[in-house]
């Protein structure tokens, strides 16, 4: 798929259901957390259907555990496919991580060692998932707090090689690059410069917290100025990329979050041309990806 530009979106959160349903605020699209709707029925799915009727959506998962050495979780993938059929998202993403081993789940996005064997494992598993879902997926770079002695290359080389071999796309989390750059002492611009531009399909923006010498990806604050600056750098490098803000804790009223999204719109407006920022017509269609 070529890169459609959806404009500027927000993560759909339960705190905002009522506001979104009643006021239908101007937001170009919503990203949902897939697992929140992997339930049999009731209000979660009823609200999802109502909001989907008015907005384009993309799906973002946290449990695929694509990097685990356990077999792929077929039950999970079947539920994901069922939800894809219901939502008809523009695209589907998950993280470049592992979450479980020996069937014990950490419910966390755990980092992988950056080496050749892991690249082969990931490329193979992503291909299997894409074959099963019948569509390419997006994978997201993590915030991480450890690095492994067995790693043989920097994260950006690891990510770029997996994308190349598997044919998947990238959900580039600008805040995660900033957080990991701080925690692992590299320049975030180096990361962005190394990523293959044609594979970048979406950006995430979020806030974070300082925990001593580490930055933790907490999604509980506004996006900070250095991350906005990095976002501008990324726009210059990649051009128009569908952008959204993730907020998962200390969630403000919808109007405040919408005002924060306007900062992203303003940065894009001063960085890119009007032509670049034209929302793809296909983005308005269901199941366009």
């Amino acid at each position: 798929m070529s890169r459609p530009f959806l404009g500027f979106g927000l993560g759909l959160r339960t705190d905002h259901y009522q506001h979104v349903i009643e006021h239908r605020p101007q937001v170009d699209w919503f990203e949902i957390i897939s697992e929140n709707y992997m339930v049999p029925g009731g209000k979660p799915l009823a609200n999802l259907d109502k909001i989907r009727a008015d907005y384009p959506m993309v799906m973002h998962g946290v449990s695929m555990s694509i990097g685990s050495t356990d077999p792929l979780n077929q039950g999970y993938l079947e539920k994901l496919k069922g939800l894809i059929e219901r939502v008809e998202p523009l695209w589907v993403s998950d993280h470049l991580c592992w979450t479980h081993v020996d069937q014990v789940n950490s419910h966390d996005l755990l980092p992988l060692p950056y080496d050749e064997a892991t690249i082969n494992h990931l490329a193979d598993r992503i291909s299997q998932v894409q074959d099963f879902l019948g569509r390419p997926i997006l994978i997201e770079n993590l915030s991480s707090y450890v690095s492994y002695t067995q790693s043989e290359m920097p994260e950006w080389a690891f990510v770029s090689e997996i994308v190349k071999r598997s044919g998947c796309y990238l959900l580039l989390d600008i805040n995660n690059i900033f957080v990991s750059a701080h925690n692992h002492h590299f320049k975030p611009e180096t990361y962005i410069d190394a990523i293959p531009s044609e594979r970048v399909m979406q950006f995430h923006l979020a806030g974070h917290s300082y925990n001593g010498d580490m930055i933790i990806d907490t999604h509980d604050h506004d996006v900070c100025d250095p991350v906005w600056a990095l976002y501008e750098y990324a726009l210059r490098r990649f051009g128009a990329v569908s952008t959204m803000i993730e907020r998962d804790d200390n969630i403000p009223p919808f109007t405040e979050l919408r005002a924060e999204l306007a900062i992203a719109e303003a940065i894009a407006a001063k960085t890119l041309t009007e032509q670049q920022l034209e929302i793809s017509g296909r983005a308005l269609l269901r199941g366009a990806a």
């Binding site: 685990s68 050495t69 592992w98 479980h100 081993v101 020996d102 014990v104 950490s106 966390d108 755990l110 992988l112 060692p113 064997a117 892991t118 494992h121 450890v146 690095s147 492994y148 002695t149 067995q150």
Partner: peptide, 26 residues
């Protein structure tokens, strides 16, 4: 196999169990 061992060691640590993972972390 090495990746699997690393993941098992990591998970043991997370669960508060005996683990060798600390030697594999910078």
């Amino acid at each position: 196999d090495q990746l699997r061992q690393l993941q098992q060691d990591f998970m043991h640590y997370v669960l508060g169990e005996q683990s060798e993972i600390v030697t594999q972390i910078e």
